[in-house]
Amino acid sequence: MPDGEKITGVADVPESGSYLFTAADAFTNETEVVLVRCEDDPGVEAWRNTCTHESQRFDRGDGAAIRDGEIVCPRHGSMFDACSGACDNGPAAGTELPGVEVAVESGSVYLTDDNYSLSHAGGIDDDEPGSTSHISL
């Protein structure tokens, strides 16, 4: 077993979409991270859940949009390679997603990045109560 905390099983990472979790740094600042499938070993990669162009979240609780092995920014359409994090189009062209180190062993994904510890599955605000408004637009 790798040194690190178990995040989830590989089977929980959708073939087309993402698995969202929250990690904390040494100062307890929380960061959302997405796990996405990748054709390269180990078969799953982890990226911070924000576009490099305008800090737009890829996964807002229902999975990131994935098209042809690329993570799609829902705001401007920039596409990031799911394996390398590199973007060669749209407003984010020439940038690369900040990665988070993970390892896969025996069908499980482990957080092995020394800069983070696992907080919980889901996004930062998933534990917050929802809106009590009954207004619909």
Rank of each mutant, 00 (worst) to 15 (best):
N115T: 11
A26R: 15
E128W: 08
E54K: 05
F21P: 01
N29Q: 04
F80W: 07
G77H: 10
R57E: 14
D88A: 05
S119K: 05
V104T: 09
R48V: 00
T22W: 09
D88Y: 02
E105C: 10
S119M: 03
G90V: 00
T22C: 14
L137W: 14
P2R: 09
E32M: 03
A86W: 06
G4M: 07
P42H: 07
A92F: 08
S117M: 03
S16H: 05
S108K: 02
M1S: 09
E96S: 12
S78H: 03
G4R: 00
G99I: 01
G17Y: 08
L111P: 12
A82P: 01
T132H: 13
A23E: 05
I71P: 05
G77K: 01
E128M: 12
V36C: 08
G94F: 04
Y19E: 03
P91K: 02
D114V: 01
L137A: 15
A23H: 10
D127N: 13
V34C: 09
A11F: 12
C83I: 00
F27G: 12
T132G: 13
G99N: 10
V72I: 14
S119G: 06
S55Y: 13
Y116V: 01
R48W: 04
L111M: 02
E5W: 09
D12H: 15
D25F: 06
S108V: 01
N49Y: 11
M79G: 07
G4K: 00
E105F: 14
R75H: 14
S78L: 08
Y19G: 04
D114K: 04
M1E: 11
V102T: 15
R57G: 07
D68F: 05
M79Y: 11
V72C: 07
T132F: 11
L20V: 02
T52F: 13
F58Q: 08
K6I: 04
A46K: 01
G85E: 05
F27R: 05
S18F: 09
E105G: 07
S84E: 14
E128P: 06
G4D: 09
I124L: 11
A64R: 02
A24C: 07
S108Y: 15
N115G: 11
D25M: 03
D81A: 03
Q56Y: 15
C83Q: 08
M1H: 10
A26F: 15
A11Y: 12
V109Y: 14
T22Y: 12
G94A: 09
G90W: 05
D126Y: 15
G9T: 01
E101W: 07
S84W: 10
G122D: 05
G85R: 00
D3A: 14
E39P: 06
E45P: 04
D88K: 02
V102C: 08
K6F: 14
I135S: 12
C87A: 02
F21G: 04
L111Y: 14
Q56K: 02
D12E: 15
F21K: 05
D62T: 05
M79S: 11
C51K: 03
D114I: 00
L137E: 15
S117L: 07
S133D: 09
T8D: 15
Y110C: 09
G107C: 02
C51N: 11
R75A: 13
V10H: 09
